[in-house]
């Protein structure tokens, strides 16, 4: 029996997707059944993520994008989201589909497999997140997109608030891959009140394009 070589996401949602795509050994869930404007959770774990650390971090321009100058700030350009974490570190999340190879520079580490990567979309997502964290997603001093590093459902996460207005509510977050299953269970349970449901990658692309 030949074993098919696949890359696996650490989570599997309940229910079957309507549409999937095989992409570089990943089976990407593209669409699930739509459920009105109820909030959605999307698995983006297959999206490439890099860690960048350098005492002179400003010299880097991954994907042609400059690193944000202060910790907590994010930029989203050319399908690349760069989150400044501290004086010497940034995380780089590739939100568009291109196949990317990591720059030949020791400052970069591919950490795609280190974390689970999730998106939450929809106007009630902040009613869900307030059940799971004390982090303030509405800090008046912060303008979206911004990064919060802190606990979410007790697990340290990197959370990027892409939008926090009723019309435009979206969060991306990562946490240690090992926690994936319990994290998604906690998120779905917290979201049950609002009919949070899984959605495919396309829903996220649509959101980004809007």
């Amino acid at each position: 029996m030949a074993v098919e070589i696949k890359r696996q996401s650490p989570i599997s949602f309940p229910g079957n997707p309507l549409k999937t795509e095989l992409r570089g050994h990943w089976t990407v869930m593209q669409e699930y059944e739509a459920k009105g404007d109820a909030p959605r959770v999307i698995d983006l774990s297959h999206r490439i993520r890099w860690d960048l650390q350098d005492s002179d971090i400003a010299r880097h321009r991954p994907g042609g994008v400059s690193i944000p100058d202060t910790p907590g700030r994010c930029v989203f350009e050319n399908g690349v989201l760069i989150n400044r974490m501290n004086r010497t570190q940034a995380s780089i999340w590739h939100l568009s589909g291109e196949d990317l190879s990591i720059p030949d520079d020791p400052a970069f580490t591919d950490v795609t497999d280190a974390t689970v990567f999730l998106a939450l979309l929809g106007k009630e997502i902040f009613s869900i997140t307030e059940k799971l964290t004390t982090l303030d997603f509405f800090d008046p001093l912060k303008e979206a997109p911004f990064l919060l590093q802190g606990p979410f459902s007790h697990v340290p996460c990197q959370m990027v608030i892409l939008g926090n207005t009723p019309e435009k509510s979206a969060i991306l977050f990562t946490c240690s891959r090992g926690y994936a299953q319990d994290m998604i269970a906690a998120v779905l349970e917290a979201g049950a009140e609002f009919e949070l449901h899984p959605a495919g990658e396309n829903a996220f692309s649509d959101w980004v394009n809007k």
Binding site: Q8, P10, K131, L132, S153, H154, V155, S176, R177, G178, Y179, A180, Q181, D182, M183, A185, A186, E189, A190
Partner: peptide
């Protein structure tokens, strides 16, 4: 409250 139990699983759990 909801008391979520957060635990890690390995990729071949």
């Amino acid at each position: 409250g909801s008391n979520h139990d957060m635990c890690k699983r390995t990729p071949v759990h």
